[in-house]
Design a protein around this nucleic acid. Structure first.
Lengths: 338, 338
DNA sequence: CCGCAAGATGTGCTCGGTCATATGCCCCTC
DNA sequence: GAGGGGCATATGACCGAGCACATCTTGCGG
């Protein structure tokens, strides 16, 4: 057992123990080539003997690199953000970076700006902003000078930052066309909350797919991503005439729709077909298993880090825009028009 | 527009601008009382004029406090860990702390130890380990000297660290007794994967509740928390005789069970009752809505931070053990024994 | 009107690393 | 055998804050 009050060993202690200068210790730690093999061995022995760990804070002070990335996100309890962040964290750690997190509960330009400032003060080398709302994205227009940043956005919208996004519109088209191909006259939509980029992108793709097929575009129902909102929407839809196909803005709302329809005795997919968006792990086991658009959040997370590191490492690199294409999974919640 | 290459202002710049010493600037920044009001105003004006931001890295070096907490977790994509971390992050930020995250994909004592070391090197003031597996918890026995730590555990198991946990056993008893009170002769259980503390706790509570009622204890089916595992278990259960009540280890597996039963034409709750564990947001909209044990992850997160900060602030505080009691939500997936 | 304590402000060192540069050494070449 | 180049290592400054202590002001009592 070590004496409790003894302070942690520092580089000078290792140097003394190994009979060299602190600079040589530094060289060994940083794999500098010009160190004789036996010296290196002596230093390494001293390091393990003392249980020395380098102080990254001191190092960050002089190198001006903290090797920490900041992540600003909104409601990390949702599957999408949670998965994206997971991907980000894995990729960052693989690249030797720490991840410092801020999850917001209210999302407006000010709180996003505050969060970024907070992280900047801490000395992060760059930030990823997972803020899928239009209002929040305005915060990206006034980044602290010289802070590398990447935004995860829901839609392709020009901006002065690098962006990684999933093509929401393409996903919505996939869903809508699938339903049209099954013979449905048109497709109803339960959208996400206004102001979200995902909502806009999905609305736009859905509308475009209907229009290009020359079909009527029904008034969309507005939800808030929650199963409850889907449930309410489902009840409305069931009471309307001629509804045979529903494209829900996400899987959770699709679950709500399914629940409402089931309660009202409407059979899926025999009477109404339902498609979701996200492909959460549960959706394969809904009743019935949900046909849905697949988003690969993991890939998004990895891309974020790639783009961000490029921006950190190469001086004045251009803004990048990376669009990930969604996939489509057909299960049992969709069928031919009755 | 500022000159691109100019370095960020430091305390000395502010001091010069305000015509005071750097120490006075420091006093203003730290709300030291002994500063004349007009001096303070002059310094504050200089700060905003220069857009000065204090360098927390330098500060951490001298104070030996980074005001950053580390969080080690496993699969932050799952609802439980994600919610816990969300609670932790909120509470930490409210207390003025940053949160640095590491999420593991493999969970064994070594990777947990590595993660903790990694964070310790970065200079975190304390760590929260959300590692609900027995094997991982062994890593807590050899913490870096003097590093305050809190573990989020699934069960009450003696340890040399502070622990915040939800009483899994009590939750399982709630579920089992509820089913017994409805007149079921006994209750089958689909457990989580072995080695998880939650699994152990829930198994134990379920078994205890059955035994204290003098009922037979069927062989539990083992799952892995995934809906698919629940689905497989559900198919097995449906093929067995006399199964009228099932307690699933979590809501996702309950979903799988419901799906399997529905596919096989077994009606819930008329023929078989099902209870889950967690109360994820979706479970209210399962078919049928799921009766389940409610875990308040938010509270767990907040408690973690409270306990950890206490350990950081007060010298040599004793290990604490905080047990959060679960709740129970009755919905439509349970009914009287047929 | 002086003395003294409390208040306001300044000085220099420290935290634990890295960087630039200096120094010593060996070996090779002409 | 002297000069020079490259390697191994040491020395000291420096990053940007805070802390302990020194110093200068002020206000108040006697």
């Amino acid at each position: 057992m070590t004496t409790p009050k003894r302070r942690l060993p520092v580089m000078a202690d290792v140097a003394r123990e190994a009979g060299v200068s602190h600079q040589t210790v530094s060289r060994v730690l940083n794999d500098h080539p010009n160190v004789r093999a036996d010296t290196r061995a002596r230093v390494e022995a001293a390091i393990t003997r003392l249980g020395y760990r380098r102080n990254l804070v001191a190092r960050a002070l002089v190198t001006k690199r903290s090797r920490t990335l900041g992540v600003v996100s909104f409601d990390t309890t949702l599957y999408g953000p949670a998965s994206t962040i997971y991907g980000i964290e894995q990729a960052a750690r693989t690249a030797g970076y720490f991840v410092s997190m801020v999850s917001l509960k209210t999302i407006d330009a000010d709180s996003v700006r505050d969060a970024i400032d907070y992280l900047a003060e801490q000395g992060v080398d760059g930030v990823v902003v997972v803020a899928p709302q239009l209002s929040a994205s305005r915060a990206l227009e006034s980044l602290p000078a010289g802070l590398p940043a990447v935004a995860v956005e829901g839609t392709q919208h020009e901006a002065d930052v690098s962006v990684v996004c999933i093509d929401q519109s393409a996903g919505a088209k996939l869903a809508t066309r699938h339903l049209l191909e099954l013979g449905h006259e048109t497709v109803w939509h339960v959208s996400g909350p206004p102001d979200w980029m995902e909502t806009e992108g999905r609305l736009e793709g859905w509308r475009a797919a209907l229009e290009e097929a020359g079909r009527p575009v029904p008034e969309p129902l507005t939800g808030d991503w929650s199963p409850r909102a889907g449930y309410e929407a489902g009840k409305s839809l069931a009471s309307m005439d001629g509804v045979t196909a529903v494209f829900a803005g996400n899987d959770q709302m699709a679950l709500g729709v399914l629940r409402a329809l089931s309660e009202l005795g409407v059979r899926v997919p025999e009477q109404i077909s339902v498609v979701g968006f996200d492909d959460i792990p549960e959706s394969e086991f809904f009743s019935p298993p949900l046909t849905t658009v697949r988003q690969d959040f993991d890939v998004v997370g990895r891309h974020c880090i790639e783009v961000l590191l490029r921006q950190i490492d190469v001086e004045a690199s251009a803004y990048e825009r990376l669009v990930v294409r969604p996939g489509f999974v057909v299960r049992s919640s969709t069928g031919p028009c009755p």
